[in-house]
Structures are given as C-alpha cells and as structure tokens.
Amino acid sequence: MSPLIQVKNVTKKYGGLTANNDISFDVAENEILSVIGPNGAGKSTLFKMISSFTPTTSGEVLYQGERISNLKPHIVARKGVVRTFQETTIFKSMTVRESVVVAQHLRAKASLAGYFWGSKTAKEDVTAFGEYADELLEFLGMSEISGEQATNLPQGSLRALGIAIGLATDPKVLLLDEPFAGMNHDETMRMVDLVRSVRDERGVTVMLVEHDMPAVMNISDRIVVLNFGEKIAQGTPSEIQNNEKVIEAYLGSADDEIGM
C-alpha cells in the first residue's frame, strides 16, 4: 500500500535561516506518527507546510499521491488534512458547542443560499450538526463544558477544544501541534488514550508534535526527529530511544529530556 502522506525533500527558508532542510518521510494510513525535536527544530514549520499555511521553499508534500503543499489552507482542509495550533487558537466568543458546530460546515449539504432561505436540506444539516457536536463532545468527554464560552476554559480544556474543532471537520489526517501542552500528567494520559481512540475508532491518521516524551513514547507508532531543521532520525519509539544522534541532540539542549 502506498503511504497516505509523503513529505518529499521539503525545505523552508526564512531569509537566511533554514527552518527545514530537505526533509523526507512517509506516513502510513492509520498511523500515529510523532515529530519531536528541541525548541526551534522546525517541527511547527513542517506542520504548517503540510497544511499549506506556509509555502515550501522547495520540495513538496503529497496526500494520496496528490500535492497538498503550496496551496491554500482551506483547500487542504477540505481534502481532509487538518491541523491544530500550538498557540491557543479558539473562537473567543463562541461556546464549545458552537465552535464544534461551525467547524462542521465542510460537511454541509445545503448551499449558502439554501441556508439563507431556510431550505429543507439546510434544516437537516443544522440538526445533524447539532447531533454530531453532542456526540463528538461526549466522545471527547467534554459534554459538561459544551455550553461554556471558550475564553472561560482552563488551558487543558482549550487544548481539547482545539482537537474537537479539528475533529469536527471529519479529517482523514489530523496534525496536532503540542496537544498535551499545559496538561498535567493525568490529563495527558487521558488525552493520549483519546488520540489513540480517534485513530482506532474514527480511522483518523494522526501526526503530532510533542515535547512530553513519555506521552510520545507511549502513543507513537513511529517517530521522526528533527534538530536544527534537519531530520536526524526516524523509527519506532524504542529505536529512537537508543539512537546515538537523538540522545546527543537532546543532551545538547538544556530544557528537554528524552524519557528513558
């Protein structure tokens, strides 16, 4: 079977700085693949190129054999490759449920005009969106906070909301940028289980960037390691834990520790 996502010789330069240098790897369908590396290694940049939030300087990203880099973010999202954000990125004055409802608009069957006139299909859409929002929030264990204004949520729930919004689009591939940031150990473990069930029960292929090494080792099928914009290793969690280059890269940086 051919891989779902192919990152091919991708390079990103910001002026004189090379944030990603000639990165290549594949992601298989139904895989959970983590991208790790010290701060500034270029992980978020890589995700931004995969989701077309920023163009590549050279190289390309293929999804089902089709190029998805250097397009527009909404086009890539519509193809089923959806990212979440490292920084808190929410619809401030919407409730959790409203955010999840609006994120489903891609699935709308009725046209914008149909909604304007209140056509039958539009009404069915609206009902379906509401039902799916409730189902999704239940699945994510967020039912109790579904009526909360996004700005009133604690950090951990904000991360979960970001994932809920991404999932509501019904993606084939979900790119999670530091989904466990700001969560305590228990929350992280719950989230790890959740991400795994997103893959298992919803058939979503997951790519994630994370600094929490125990969580990464626990959740990943495979790991790609970046350092200073270069891919220095890839492999299974145990391969990565024993990789000389990786250990060196992490020992070289003060604030990270590879969980062994």
């Binding site: 999202a77 619809f91 609006v102 009725a110």
Partner: peptide, 20 residues
C-alpha cells in the same frame, strides 16, 4: 451558515481557514 462562517472569521481567521 454564511453568518456563522463570518463570525468564525471575525474571531480567528487562521482557525477559520484551518477548518476549511
């Protein structure tokens, strides 16, 4: 729906484009 999409854009254009 158009109104809801507008609202999403007003609140966060990046997030809006990430959901298509």
């Amino acid at each position: 729906r158009l109104g809801h999409l507008c609202r999403s854009m007003q609140q966060n254009e990046e997030l809006a484009s990430s959901i298509g």
